Amino acid sequence: MKYLDNNLLLNSVIDLIDDLIFYKDKHFRYIGCNTAFLNFVGKKAEDLIGKDDFEIFDHDLACLFRKHDKLMLAEGSVRSNEEWVVYPNNNKVYLLTKKIPFVYDGINTGILGISRDITSLEKANQQLKQQTLLDELTQIKNRKAYNLKIKSLLAVFERYQTPFSIISIDIDDFKNINDNFGHDVGDTVLRSFGALIEKNIRETDHLFRIGGEEFVILSESKTKVDAIQLAEKLRKIVAFNTILTDINITISLGICEVTTGDGPNSIAKRVDNLLYEAKSHGKNKVTYHSVT
């Protein structure tokens, strides 16, 4: 009777816990869980006990659970993992799950799992991470985001020879705007310019503010010709658009395409030289090496 009372007390305590608690036998069948787990997966106890994950969840989710269960049993120690999970009720959450081996029936080793819903924390972390990749003034991606993206594109190019182009953009005579109208107006011009460019590029084009009046587009175009056409379109849009009343600006652009052996520094140096060439030959120009 004392043993029964202890079990009832333990189950009552477990049911008061908000974390999701479940336990499975050595064949990965559920032998118990708390009320929070039942509510979370939208099941009744009789629909869960005695069944394994493949009888309850979709195949991909069941495979994920089985993978972690097997790893934990093989290691024989506590195992933690974090992941996005979509449950049968279409509830998508980010879970921190810890699994440990536990002995039942005196001889068999099963799985005890405790999952905590940390969705709000993960979303906050993602939002914070995104904020660190945005330029504070213009709210477009910054140099840190550029460094991450170009390394990713170079890795894909090295492995699959997937081409991309880099377009370096500089606002012509921007210093005159600051000198004649003040830095507040200059900042407004930069914000308006960034918004104008971002509005006129494609999903496969990625705009970054590198610093000052310098911007870069990493274009996942199939050919450099596509990047050149994009650059010319942007140059004309800017030249014929009044960013602010009585303020017209022009831009100079340099374009180059990734080549074998390129690294972040080599491709940046080539495109900077082309941008300098555009500015040295009258500005409001697009400069690129001849397409072969």
Rank of each mutant, 00 (worst) to 15 (best):
Tyr160Lys: 08
Thr162Ile: 02
Glu158Asn: 11
Leu153Trp: 04
Lys129Glu: 12
Ala145Tyr: 14
Ser152Thr: 13
Tyr146Lys: 13
Lys141His: 11
Gln130Lys: 15
Ile140His: 11
Ala155Trp: 00
Thr162Asn: 07
Pro163Arg: 00
Arg159Trp: 07
Thr132Ile: 14
Ser165Thr: 13
Lys144Ala: 12
Leu154Cys: 05
Ser152Asp: 15
Leu154Arg: 04
Ser168Thr: 00
Lys141Phe: 07
Lys151Cys: 01
Arg159Asp: 02
Ser165Phe: 06
Asp135Leu: 11
Tyr160Met: 03
Ser152Gly: 10
Phe157Glu: 03
Ala145Arg: 12
Tyr146Cys: 14
Tyr146Ile: 09
Gln130Phe: 13
Gln161Glu: 10
Ser165Val: 01
Glu136Met: 12
Ala145Glu: 11
Leu133Glu: 05
Lys141Ile: 02
Tyr146Asn: 05
Leu148Arg: 12
Ile166Asp: 09
Phe164Val: 03
Ile166Asn: 07
Lys149Leu: 15
Leu134Lys: 15
Ile150Tyr: 10
Gln130Arg: 15
Ile167Phe: 07
Phe157Ile: 02
Val156Leu: 04
Leu133Asp: 12
Gln161Tyr: 00
Phe164Arg: 10
Ser165Gln: 08
Arg159Gly: 00
Lys144Gly: 12
Ile150Glu: 13
Leu153Arg: 01
Thr132Asp: 08
Val156Arg: 14
Gln139Arg: 13
Phe164Asp: 11
Pro163Asp: 00
Asn147Asp: 13
Lys141Met: 02
Lys144His: 15
Phe157Arg: 07
Gln161Lys: 08
Lys129His: 09
Glu158Ala: 04
Thr138Pro: 09
Val156Gln: 05
Lys151Val: 04
Ile166Ser: 03
Lys141Ala: 09
Tyr146Trp: 03
Leu134Arg: 15
Arg143Pro: 08
Ala155Pro: 01
Ser165Gly: 06
Leu153Phe: 14
Tyr160Leu: 06
Leu153Val: 06
Ile140Glu: 03
Ala155Met: 01
Asp135Ile: 06
Lys149Pro: 04
Ser165His: 11
Lys141Asp: 07
Thr162Pro: 06
Ser168Leu: 02
Leu154Pro: 12
Ala155Lys: 02
Leu148Val: 13
Ile166Met: 14
Thr132Trp: 09
Leu153Ala: 07
Lys129Leu: 11
Lys149Gly: 00
Leu154Thr: 07
Arg159Glu: 03
Leu148Lys: 13
Ser165Met: 09
Val156His: 02
Gln161Ser: 08
Phe164Trp: 05
Tyr160Cys: 03
Gln139Ile: 01
Leu137Asp: 00
Phe157Met: 05
Phe157Cys: 04
Lys144Thr: 11
Tyr146Arg: 04
Pro163Trp: 02
Asn147Phe: 08
Ser152Cys: 08
Ile150Lys: 15
Leu133Asn: 12
Tyr160Glu: 08
Tyr160Val: 03
Arg143Val: 14
